[in-house]
Simulated assay, not measured.
Amino acid sequence: MINLFVKTEPQKKWMQKLYEKETKFKNTSVQTDEFSIFPKDNIQDLIDMGYSSITLPKAYGGEGLGVYEMILFQETLASFDENTALSIGWNFGVVGDIFEQKLWKQKDLESFSKEVLNGALTNRSVSEAQTGSPTRGGRPGTNAVKKDGYWEISGRKSFTTASPVLTYFLTSAWIEEKQKVGFFLLHKDLEGLSIDETWDVISMKGTASHDLVLQNVKVDESKLVELPDVPKGGKFNGWLLHIPACYLGIAQAARDYAVHFANTHSPNSLNGPISQLPNVQQLLGEIDLALTQARHLIYSVAEAYDDESRRGYLTNEVGVVKHTVTNSAITIVDKAMRIVGAKSLQRGNPLQRYYRNVRAGLHNPPADDMTIRNLALSAIEQKKSKALF
């Protein structure tokens, strides 16, 4: 089904590279989940093939691939191993957004791009236990105080996905003297920076989304790389579509397992596999219907986002995609389990892993209630257009 969305030679090239890792990544996914192991080897494989820098613009030495390609590759990768996909996906989102929006000074972008090309990984560290999701506007408890030519930063951040391999933590902090939230680029080797291994969950166990602990971390004043005048608030950029792409990949993997099971499982009460049963066919048809709808939605929005002439017309579409795809993925996995039956709950069955992991999507931004509220507010505040074009 996904081949329908492969349109260019660079896309084909990278899809082929990813499929060369399919067997390895699928084989290690069981241990990753069972023992909550971060898939370092998988991430290193991706870095070695240059995958981690593909969203870096060509002007900075990257391949300049857009949101559409990111979704195409991330969905595929997630169907092999969802922990690997979500972990590398956050790096894509940060790099893509920073360079697309030119959020930093030119010299900082040039310096950072060289590190990205050399395999450096980064993620934003914004969530905190007391503030909850940063998308809801809470002020960070992490504080930055300016002293003699440097900043001193203290605080604790939650949900720092891929923490064992991150080179940089793009960390939000409240700057009292400016009465603003700023973002600091913190290198992993800074004194006072440590990782507290707090990640103890039943979903996405291998993402190592531990706490980042900052104890009087001192950095040069130039490491304050972002000081936005207006926080982004509820507006979500297209690079966040790596999130629903991951859960779409999980749904595809669940679907493939259910189809294989239906075609090969033959109880002695039947003269053939259960795929001949009307109720099984109904479930399989509903699964593919939901997959088709979700996939066309996410790729349509990604294509519009990559087109600068259309990007400005997008409003709540990114949130709609995340809401629709994530909830569809949950439904798809549920129906796959209904086809397989009680065997789907066995620890050795991949469906029980998909069932746990796909639900994590509900807690990634933006939350469902925010998406629905934003749609309502947009409808209420919408003004009549003077012209169609």
Results as ranks from 00 to 15, higher is better:
Val318Lys: 01
Val318Leu: 05
Gly319Cys: 06
Gly319Arg: 01
Gly319Thr: 06
Val320Lys: 07
Val321Cys: 04
Val321Trp: 01
Val321His: 02
Val321Leu: 04
Lys322Trp: 03
His323Gln: 02
His323Leu: 01
Thr324Ile: 02
Thr326His: 09
Thr326Gln: 08
Thr326Arg: 09
Asn327His: 00
Ser328Asn: 10
Ser328Cys: 11
Ser328Leu: 10
Ser328Glu: 07
Ala329Lys: 02
Ile330Arg: 02
Ile330Met: 04
Ile330Trp: 01
Ile330His: 03
Thr331His: 15
Thr331Ile: 15
Ile332Gly: 00
Ile332Trp: 00
Ile332Asn: 00
Ile332Thr: 00
Val333Ile: 08
Val333Trp: 01
Asp334Val: 05
Asp334Ala: 11
Asp334Lys: 09
Asp334Gln: 08
Ala336Ile: 04
Met337Gln: 10
Met337Lys: 09
Met337Pro: 04
Met337Thr: 05
Met337Cys: 08
Arg338Asn: 10
Ile339Val: 02
Val340Arg: 02
Gly341Val: 13
Gly341Lys: 14
Ala342His: 11
Ala342Cys: 11
Lys343Tyr: 10
Ser344Asp: 09
Ser344Ile: 03
Ser344Phe: 06
Leu345Lys: 13
Gln346Tyr: 07
Gln346Gly: 07
Arg347Ser: 07
Arg347Met: 08
Arg347Gly: 08
Gly348Ser: 04
Gly348Phe: 02
Asn349Leu: 00
Asn349Trp: 01
Pro350Cys: 09
Pro350Tyr: 09
Pro350Thr: 10
Leu351Lys: 00
Leu351Gln: 00
Leu351Thr: 00
Gln352Lys: 13
Gln352Arg: 11
Arg353Thr: 11
Arg353Asp: 05
Arg353Tyr: 08
Arg353Leu: 09
Tyr354Val: 09
Tyr354Ser: 05
Tyr354His: 07
Tyr355Phe: 10
Arg356Ser: 07
Arg356Gly: 06
Arg356Asn: 07
Arg356Trp: 05
Val358Phe: 04
Arg359Cys: 05
Ala360Asn: 13
Ala360Ser: 14
Gly361Ser: 03
Leu362Cys: 02
Leu362Glu: 04
Leu362Gln: 04
His363Gly: 08
His363Ala: 09
His363Ser: 10
Asn364Ser: 11
Pro366Tyr: 04
Pro366Lys: 03
Pro366Thr: 03
Asp368Tyr: 06
Asp368Thr: 06
Asp368Cys: 07
Asp368Ile: 05
Asp368Trp: 05
Asp369Asn: 06
Met370Cys: 06
Met370Ser: 05
Thr371Pro: 03
Thr371Met: 07
Ile372Asp: 03
Ile372Trp: 04
Arg373Asn: 15
Arg373Tyr: 15
Arg373Phe: 15
Asn374Phe: 06
Asn374His: 12
Asn374Met: 08
Leu375Phe: 12
Leu375Tyr: 09
Leu375Gln: 10
Leu375Arg: 12
Ala376Tyr: 14
Ala376Trp: 14
Ala376Phe: 15
Leu377Lys: 12
Ser378Arg: 15
Ser378Tyr: 14
Ala379Val: 12
Ile380Asn: 12
Ile380Lys: 11
Ile380Cys: 08
Glu381His: 15
Gln382Ala: 11
Gln382Ile: 11
Gln382Ser: 11
Lys383His: 14
Lys383Met: 13
Lys383Asp: 13
Lys384Glu: 07
Lys384Ile: 02
Lys384Val: 03
Ser385Thr: 12
Lys386Tyr: 15
Lys386Asp: 15
Lys386Glu: 15
Lys386His: 14
Ala387Asp: 15
Ala387Lys: 15
Ala387Met: 15
Phe389Ala: 10
Phe389Asn: 11
